[in-house]
Amino acid sequence: MAGYVKRSRQTNGHTASKGGTEESPFFKWLLITVALLFSILFLLLPLVNVFAQALSKGWQAYWTALSEPDAWAAIKLTLLVAAITVPLNVVFGLAAAWAIAKFDFRGKSLLNTLIDLPFSVSPVVAGLMYVLLFGLQGYFGRWLADHEIKIIFAVPGIVIATIFITFPFVARELIPVMQATRSEQEQAALTLGATGWQTFWRVTLPSVKWGLLYGIILCNARAMGEFGAVSVVSGHITGQTDTMPLRIEKLYQEYNAAAAFAIASLLALLALLTLGIKTFLEWKQERDYERAQRAAESYEDSTAPTSREPEITAVRSQP
């Protein structure tokens, strides 16, 4: 629930006349003005401000802030965490979606709820849970220390906490898409001799690829930007366990606002890129939907009494 935003938008396309169902122009423009002001205040200004502040001391300072070793280390760590987290959650998402969308079993809705659970857990609480498990005082702390495995205040902890936070994204996107592709397509592949893997790679995966990509970009954005959970488990060791968001906090506390904004501007760019891809994917989905609608219409045409169906004249015998 409280983790991401749903986008199911299939416009009804009813361009019914608006006579009598339209507000007075004054009221209409009042509403538009209020909405615009609200959007500018809460959406546009914060966005523009990031870049304005990042460049407030000029390009030179901006570049220095980004190329500084600690900043560079934070960038690399963030990329590393995303590079581990996203593939793992993709594998999980595919497995969970396959099991949930293609089969019936008891406790399916419970499983669905459990998958959504991380959305409703506060990031700080999530981080704490892993401290309690893997921290020095934690349930596995002694054992881990004996084997010289460091999870908390180290990269593995950051990765695990990020996995938790981004856990539902791919699965949540894939489950409805996989349910929508009729399992008859998979059955057809089976009757033609395809094995389970062949069916999955050649039929299932191509038909859910846009949904998967959508899930991946959301998962990635969240993985790179996670703050609360990572903050609890990272230990804030500069140059070692500082991700980009943590680095921003540290610079901010050091009153180095311009440097903080410089790193923040990279994450803001990531957010814009994510929005761009998201918008593109939604547009694509809408287009596919319209195509399907059109196909259905042409299908109706072909079944109309005046048939455009080519006459089937002769069936040639098979050599």
Partner: peptide, 14 residues
């Protein structure tokens, strides 16, 4: 066997 499904179940991506 060859099976023809009621809604044809053509592979949409091919």
């Amino acid at each position: 066997i060859g099976f023809v499904f009621q809604n044809y179940a053509l592979f949409q991506n091919m």
